[in-house]
């Protein structure tokens, strides 16, 4: 397990063409040694979770700048739980007000990054999550 690359599925849900951020993150995570599957634009929550299962991804990252983050993140999280991959990390970013961010974190969603977030910080967050996860597995 320890030698395996962290696998991340990235996607843009909904009618939102702002893909500059997600593509920069894709490149950055690859440079940090992760395996990245970018699904592209106009993805449905179902397609995203199916892809995560098929790819056996550790992490799902969503980029939402259209204001529909509450619907999209919630639905993806529900589907992850339904399909038994609730132990994977759901994270992401976009224009997400603090209030909404807090509510999403309560639902078991990981950190969400806003405008000006540092790309290395995002990669380090994922690495730390993966380390604590494998440490947790080792203990049990």
């Amino acid at each position: 397990m320890s030698g395996k690359k962290i696998k991340v599925v990235l996607a843009k849900p909904g009618l939102d063409g702002h893909d500059r951020g997600v593509k920069v993150i894709a490149r950055s995570l690859v440079e940090h040694g992760m395996e990245v599957v970018y699904l592209g634009l106009q993805q449905t929550p179902e397609a995203i979770v199916n892809a995560a299962i098929e790819e056996d991804a550790d992490v799902i990252g969503l980029s939402v700048l259209s204001g529909s983050h509450m619907t999209q993140f919630k639905r993806v999280r529900e589907l992850m739980l339904e399909h038994g991959i609730g132990d994977r990390l759901l994270t992401g970013g976009g224009i997400i007000p603090d209030k909404d961010r807090d509510r999403l974190v309560e639902l078991g969603i990981g950190r969400l990054f806003g405008p000006g977030a540092d790309i290395d910080e995002i990669a380090n967050y994922i690495k730390e999550w993966a380390e604590s996860r494998s440490a947790g597995t080792a203990e049990t």
């Binding site: 500059r20 593509k23 920069v24 490149r27 950055s28 540092d118 790309i119 290395d120």
Partner: peptide
């Protein structure tokens, strides 16, 4: 995307 990434790295 390459240019956007180069810029973001310089910011980082």
């Amino acid at each position: 995307t390459r240019s956007a990434y180069e810029y973001q790295k310089a910011i980082s």
